[in-house]
Simulated assay, not measured.
Amino acid sequence: MLKKFNSFAFLFYFITSSLKEPVFGIDDDSESRSLMKLHQYSYRNIDKWYSINHRCSGGLQSPIDINMRQTKKEIFPKFTRTNYFIKPLTTKITKGKFNLMVLPIYEQDYPILLGGPLEEPYRFNHVVFHWGKSDNLGSEHAINGKKFPLEIQAVHYNDNYDSYSEALNSPNGIAIVSYLFNINEKTTGDLALDLIQKPFEMLASVPTGEVELDYAFPISLLTPPIYKRYVTYNGSLTLPPCSENVIWIVNYKPRSITMLEMEKFRMLYNNSEGLINNFRPLQMTNQRDIYIVK
Rank of each mutant, 00 (worst) to 15 (best):
S256D: 10
N270Y: 15
F98A: 08
E140P: 00
K3M: 13
A204N: 08
E151P: 01
Y106T: 12
G25D: 05
G25L: 04
R229C: 09
V23T: 09
I64L: 14
S178C: 11
E273D: 12
K294G: 05
D289K: 09
Y269W: 12
G235H: 04
W248K: 12
S57Q: 15
Y291F: 02
L100I: 11
Y179S: 08
A204E: 09
T90F: 07
L275M: 07
P111S: 07
T16L: 09
V246M: 09
I183Y: 04
K4M: 12
N158W: 00
N125H: 13
Q153V: 11
Y84W: 09
T80A: 04
F85D: 11
S236G: 03
F5C: 08
G189K: 07
F200W: 02
M68C: 05
F98Y: 14
P225R: 06
P104M: 15
I219D: 03
Q153R: 15
D162A: 05
T258A: 04
P111D: 08
L114F: 11
I290S: 01
K294C: 02
D65I: 06
Y13S: 13
S7M: 07
R81P: 00
I196E: 02
N45Q: 09
I26K: 05
N160A: 10
P171V: 13
E31C: 10
S220R: 04
N53I: 07
R280T: 10
L168A: 05
T82C: 02
K95W: 08
T258Y: 09
I257S: 06
P207A: 02
L60W: 08
N278A: 06
P104A: 15
N277R: 06
Y157F: 01
R55V: 10
E263G: 04
P22G: 00
T80H: 04
N53C: 13
I249M: 02
P121L: 01
S34D: 14
H141D: 10
L2P: 10
Y157N: 00
N169E: 13
D27H: 14
S272D: 14
G173H: 05
Y122N: 01
D47I: 05
L137G: 08
F24T: 06
I46D: 06
L203F: 07
K20A: 10
N6W: 06
E119V: 10
E261D: 08
I143P: 11
I219N: 04
Q70W: 11
A142W: 11
E273N: 14
S243P: 00
A175W: 05
Y122D: 00
E261C: 06
E212T: 15
N136I: 12
P117C: 10
A216R: 13
L19P: 06
M259L: 15
P199I: 07
S170P: 05
M1A: 13
Y252P: 06
T71Q: 05
D162F: 07
S178W: 00
R229N: 13
R33V: 03
N182W: 06
S32I: 02
D27A: 14
K78T: 08
P63R: 03
S205A: 09
V127L: 06
P149H: 12
N271R: 12
N286W: 15
V155N: 00
K147S: 15
S272K: 15
